[in-house]
Design a binder for these strands. Structure first.
Lengths: 157, 157
DNA sequence: TAAAGAAATGATACAACATAACATTGAAGG
DNA sequence: CCTTCAATGTTATGTTGTATCATTTCTTTA
């Protein structure tokens, strides 16, 4: 019996989380998630359609990909990045516990994204500020615009 | 000579900022900005097309509205809210100085948005966190998802 | 284990958001 | 006045996302 790869482990962990929440981990869902894990950077829904249709003998349609992404977002296994209209796997896919508070920096040049864990004092501060203008905070996830070191060093060449 | 209304003053201030930056404050730009000010909540580009075409005898096309919005965003008079695909006027339109660091809470229910000034310690913290994952921060503007008090009290009825 | 019910996906159509590319107009400076 | 560049017009098309109804595939349970 061969050794499980890292990706196998991530998928297995994802499957457990889905099942624990009463959701199914179908082949299509598995394949979409695997493609998103392997990509290692944000992909659009239509990128995932293309990837799937190239790498699989079956075909999938955009509608289904959107539904699958929504499912994984609800499971907190995937995040949507609205500034890019793209999707990334949660960087804590390997963990057993849930991670509700995180944010992202997105590289203006290459579009790569990095997830950052939110410090509790930051969460607290955001909650207070939001309250002070008459709102209740529902979700603290957000995106910042930046430049990654790789792009920064290329730019200076 | 009649007294200037608040909106007149905002528009006049906007005109000065545009001209100071070497941009023109054309009639179309003026009217689009006025419509966005009067709306008092986020509007999509196509909302602005419709508004303009209803309220003016001239017609405008989506392409032009997008160009005008881009111009105002560059002038820092308008902000884009990517989670809504909508646009709002900067809440500091009346001020003489520039405001680079702010964020927004968006009501999940009604889509209304509230601008929040960013506390310098928050700016500093974001800069440091972003650096620590190998990025330089370019723009700290972001959106949070919340529920406004008006919607919260309706929901509990 | 067959039937019923629920969850997931298929299929088609379309709505909403955004930009490309090239033509025309109009304002400001020499 | 005329040149130049900024702004807008015009048309087409690309991209992102959802509505709707049909079908398939699981799961439960009688």
């Amino acid at each position: 019996m061969r050794k499980l790869t890292l990706i196998d482990k991530l998928l297995q962990n994802a499957e457990e989380k889905c099942q624990a929440a009463g959701g199914r981990f179908t082949n299509k869902r598995r394949d979409i998630l695997e493609n998103l894990i392997r990509a290692e950077h944000p992909l659009s829904a239509y990128d995932l359609v293309e990837l799937y249709n190239q790498s699989s003998e079956q075909k999938i349609q955009a509608m289904s990909v959107y539904r699958i992404l929504d499912f994984f977002i609800e499971m907190q296994l995937v995040h949507k990045l609205p500034t890019l209209n793209k999707y990334v796997v949660c960087s804590h896919l390997a963990c057993k516990h849930n991670h509700k508070d995180q944010y992202f920096v997105v590289c203006k040049n290459c579009g790569d994204a990095q997830e950052i864990a939110m410090n509790p004092t930051l969460t607290k501060e955001l909650n207070e500020s939001v309250s002070s203008v008459g709102f209740q905070l529902i979700d603290a996830q957000f995106e910042l615009l930046g430049l990654c070191n790789a792009c920064a060093s290329k730019a200076s060449n």
